[in-house]
Design a protein around this nucleic acid. Structure first.
Length: 610
DNA sequence: TTAGGGTTAG
């Protein structure tokens, strides 16, 4: 209902956005028309001032000395070449500016290439050049090279500054090298002439957040508050975002209030994190409130905010509504980007509407350089999920021809696709190929291949793969154990399955409802219905609520083991808990009724449970 | 001219 309310607001807002009145008036919030629905005000879509008209002048039309804003790598290389041909040569500063702008576009390898060209053309380096180079190596997870650039500083008699060290700390944290990051921080603090600043501490706080250690992040925030290096918006926003990602939205909102009470004003990034957090919890009313609140402060949603809305709607199956949001973006002169379209494609794939997803993909292709690895992976995943492995492989080859590098997620989707069509040998080959191509399988990849092997009754290979995961010290989760327990149960190895199940707590893992259901099903198949029923009691005692599947499995177990009266007792319990008989259990009961094996007095109960 | 926060895929 709340979702529908939100969508009606969006739809209403869309109407006003397209009206002549709105288009002619880049209005302020105070002048805007409010869209009212159940006391919610959804004004932001038609209160945001229009963006200025884009200049048609290309980057190359502008003189180098104006420090042109680079918007793509091709322009960067062109401007760079022109500068190299200039006589006298420009100083190192404009070269640094180009390197910096390309780094901001996240084309780190291109920066390294430009840097090498500077060396060939005998253009000197300074602290800026080398720091930008370190940034690039850090983002490419090549800390070894970053540290060798640090060596260049000393060789050239240059002194690294707080920017250099902060970047190196970030690089260490990105590679999970926490101890080295801490050592560098302590060296800075002891050194005297290059003290860490608010960005350094912000970087460390983000490192804690990335590791899921919100309490350490908050502890450091408190220390900053006590000291001279006061936290500001970015630091608070970092923690607010991390709390939202961990679904600790109440804590995030409390920190948000605390931040504002200290006079620190939020911006669109802070609000987008909060909106994302509440959307993930399905708290649409709260999302609407936050959207209206930000607009009331003249903070307007940007492409990130809209993408959060589009993606959440798509994940909820509301792709038509998501398309509506995209239309609103376009009217608001906010260009949908590849993230927007990738979310839409995934939304269509989730609904099984691959044709529509393909149309979005073709639209992206027609727009030029919009299709990326995620776009291909999304569509590949859509085909794989619907057992169209040949189409998925065609796309995979196409992306390789275009020079796009398939990542772990792309390969994982394809491994899943091959497993789904029973071509387990191909799945295993692809699993090896991805590693040969430098893409490491993660826990998800392993879980998919393990499941494929178990479902194809290749249990010994599955156990071998599990051993590989243990040897690699991967973070083996309950999903992996559930797959193995199911594989053991289905091959009649109930003892081994029971051992694995009972050993979960010693590994610090809690079975979830799926794990219980698998074990209960295994016990029923083995005729151990009493033990299955005990497990039902045990799971409830441990706070894991059974679902309809749990009850139906045990009821079928009772019927198969000719324990009809016990089945009827459980049907009663199930009905009291609000669950129904599923199709296969119903079929068994109808069969019993036809053979007069059920007391007619129980008929009303059975009817009630259907 | 260099460092820190928000969006997508399994």
């Amino acid at each position: 209902m709340l979702k529908m309310m939100m969508m009606r607001n969006i739809a209403a807002a869309s109407f006003y956005c397209s009206s002549r009145r709105w288009r002619g008036m880049p209005c302020l919030h105070s002048n805007s028309t409010l869209v009212v629905f159940d006391n919610n005000y959804f004004a932001f879509f038609h209160s945001q001032p229009s963006k200025p008209i884009k200049s048609t002048r290309t980057q190359l039309d502008q003189p180098v000395r104006d420090s042109p804003k680079i918007t793509n790598v091709e322009d960067a290389f062109n401007v760079f070449d022109r500068m190299l041909q200039m006589r006298p040569r420009p100083s190192v500063v404009p070269f640094n500016q180009i390197l910096g702008q390309v780094a901001k576009l996240k084309h780190y390898s291109a920066v390294i290439s430009l840097y090498n060209q500077m060396g060939v053309s005998r253009i000197g380096h300074d602290v800026y050049t080398l720091t930008i180079l370190i940034i690039c190596y850090c983002h490419l997870n090549q800390m070894g090279f970053s540290l060798s650039v640090l060596g260049k500083f000393f060789k050239l008699g240059l002194e690294p500054d707080v920017f250099t060290f902060t970047t190196l700390i970030k690089g260490f944290l990105l590679e999970n090298r926490v101890a080295e990051a801490a050592t560098l921080l302590h060296k800075m603090m002891r050194g005297g002439n290059c003290q860490p600043n608010v960005v350094t501490f912000g970087t460390i706080i983000r490192g804690f957040c990335m590791k899921g250690n919100n309490s350490a992040a908050i502890q450091l925030l408190r220390k900053m508050e006590e000291g001279a290096c006061k936290p500001y918006l970015v630091v608070y926003s970092t923690i607010i975002d991390s709390l939202c990602k961990d679904t600790l939205v109440v804590d995030a909102l409390n920190l948000f209030s605390e931040m504002m009470s200290k006079g620190i004003a939020p911006n669109v990034i802070t609000y987008t994190s909060l909106i994302h957090g509440v959307c993930k919890l399905g708290a649409w009313k709260e999302a609407t409130r936050l959207l209206n609140e930000m607009v009331s402060k003249n903070i307007f949603p940007d492409v990130f905010t809209f993408n959060v809305l589009v993606d959440t709607l798509c994940k909820e199956g509301m792709v038509v509504e998501a398309e509506g949001v995209v239309e609103i973006m376009i009217r608001r002169d906010i260009d949908p980007d590849s993230v927007t379209y990738n979310s839409l494609m995934d939304g269509y794939c989730l609904r099984g509407e691959i044709g529509k997803a393909k149309k979005v993909f073709e639209l992206m292709l027609s727009k030029g350089s919009m299709v990326d690895v995620v776009s291909y992976s999304t569509l590949i995943n859509g085909y794989c999920k619907h057992k169209k492995i040949n189409k998925a492989m065609m796309l995979f080859l196409d992306m390789c021809h275009k020079g796009l590098v398939a990542d772990t997620i792309t390969y994982t989707s394809l491994v899943d696709g091959f497993c789904k069509v029973g071509r387990i040998d191909y799945a295993q080959k692809l699993f090896s190929k991805m590693q040969a191509c430098g893409q490491l399988p993660n826990v998800r990849t392993y879980s998919i291949l393990l499941d494929g092997l178990c479902k194809n009754r290749q249990l010994s290979r599955a156990m071998q793969l599990f051993g590989e995961m243990e040897a690699k010290k991967l973070d083996i989760d309950i999903v992996i154990y559930s797959i193995l327990i199911e594989g053991l149960c289905k091959t009649g190895k109930i003892e081994s399955a029971r051992d694995l199940f009972c050993g979960l707590s010693s590994k610090g893992l809690q079975p979830n409802v799926r794990t219980y259901n698998i074990m209960i099903s295994g016990l029923c198949i083995a005729g151990l219905t009493r033990e299955a029923e005990n497990l039902l009691i045990q799971m409830e005692e441990k706070g894991c609520s059974p679902d309809g599947w749990t009850f139906n499995t045990i009821i079928r177990g009772f019927i198969h083991n000719k324990q009809t009266s016990r089945a009827m007792v459980l049907i009663q319990t199930m009905a009291e808990k609000g669950f129904s008989l599923d199709a296969s259990t119903t079929e068994l009961i109808v069969n019993l009724l036809s053979k007069d094996e059920v007391d007619p007095a129980l008929l009303p109960l059975i009817k009630k449970s259907l």
